[in-house]
């Protein structure tokens, strides 16, 4: 269904209108499914291209809460959570300690599978939306992120929380993790939109944008979209060359350096 919306969005207005009309007609005739609420979500872009002038980008997540006739109106408001998460990586968090008078890296904790990028947008503060188990299960809110560690960790239990907190703090400082509440804009009762800024140091890879619809602490519906962040053109070529054809890349770097040096020697020759 998401693809419908996207294809409609990309076509000229007249054609889209005709398509939408036809589609709407078809949809109203469809029998209602068991679920009372559903989510329609799309992204402003499904690919973010990193070029030489890349300084970050914005991705707009928009959609609608779809209710059928059987939906019972309830007093609690709808809550939404949009989670943009990057490819999983294994990371080591190190802590400096004093050793023989100088400050060196001493203790380390390795987290096995943590997203390289994680932004959570919620309509209200995460702890107001749902009880902790629900939040933890769906990774809503940074402090509900499960950080699995290796079995052979040398850090005592009592100290592990310090590493967890430091990891989250550093990631937030570098702009790779963020948690924002009250940033999902409702354009009508059911129509919503939020803008997720991607910083310039955004890691490349396959991202998922997950949207959760909750009410009264219970999950009503969810939707998952994929987003690709990739280097393009020269950046991609350079990166590929450096990793897949490392020897060629090395020789190229040397040739470039020697040429630049030689050229400078010729241009500025004074004898």
């Amino acid at each position: 269904m998401m693809r419908c919306v996207r294809s409609l969005l990309r076509r000229p207005a007249g054609e889209a209108l005709a398509g939408a009309l036809a589609l709407a007609l078809a949809l109203t005739l469809l029998p209602a499914s068991g679920k009372a609420e559903d989510l329609v979500v799309d992204l402003s872009d499904d690919t973010i291209n990193i070029e030489s002038n890349f300084t970050g980008a914005n991705i707009v997540v928009f959609g609608q809460i779809v209710r059928d006739a059987a939906t019972v109106g309830r007093p609690e408001p709808y809550d939404l959570a949009v989670i943009v998460s990057g490819p999983e990586t294994r990371v080591t968090t190190r802590r400096k300690g004093r050793f023989a008078g100088i400050w060196v890296n001493r203790d380390a904790e390795t987290f096995l599978e943590v997203p390289s990028f994680l932004v959570t947008h919620t309509s209200r503060r995460a702890n107001e939306i749902a009880p902790r188990p629900v939040l933890e299960q769906h990774r809503i809110g940074l402090f509900n992120l499960n950080l699995p560690i290796t079995g052979d960790s040398g850090v005592p239990m009592s100290d592990r929380d310090n590493f967890r907190r430091a990891f989250l703090r550093l990631r937030v400082e570098s702009g790779l993790y963020a948690e924002r509440s009250g940033v999902i804009e409702f354009l009508s009762d059911t129509l919503f939109r939020t803008t997720v800024p991607l910083p310039a140091n955004v890691p490349v890879g396959e991202y998922t944008v997950t949207t959760y619809l909750l009410r009264g602490g219970a999950l009503l519906a969810s939707n998952e979209q994929s987003l690709v962040v990739a280097k393009t053109g020269f950046e991609q070529l350079t990166y590929r060359l450096a990793y897949n054809y490392a020897a060629v890349y090395g020789l190229l770097a040397i040739a470039l350096a020697v040429f630049t040096g030689w050229l400078a020697g010729v241009i500025f020759r004074r004898d």
Binding site: M2, R3, L8, A26, L27, V40, V66, L187
Partner: peptide
């Protein structure tokens, strides 16, 4: 639907226009 999706819900016209 040209993209081959199914199971869309009712009330789609307003949504699509507005979103668009």
């Amino acid at each position: 639907c040209p993209a081959g999706c199914d199971g869309c819900h009712a009330g789609a016209l307003a949504l699509r226009l507005a979103l668009f």
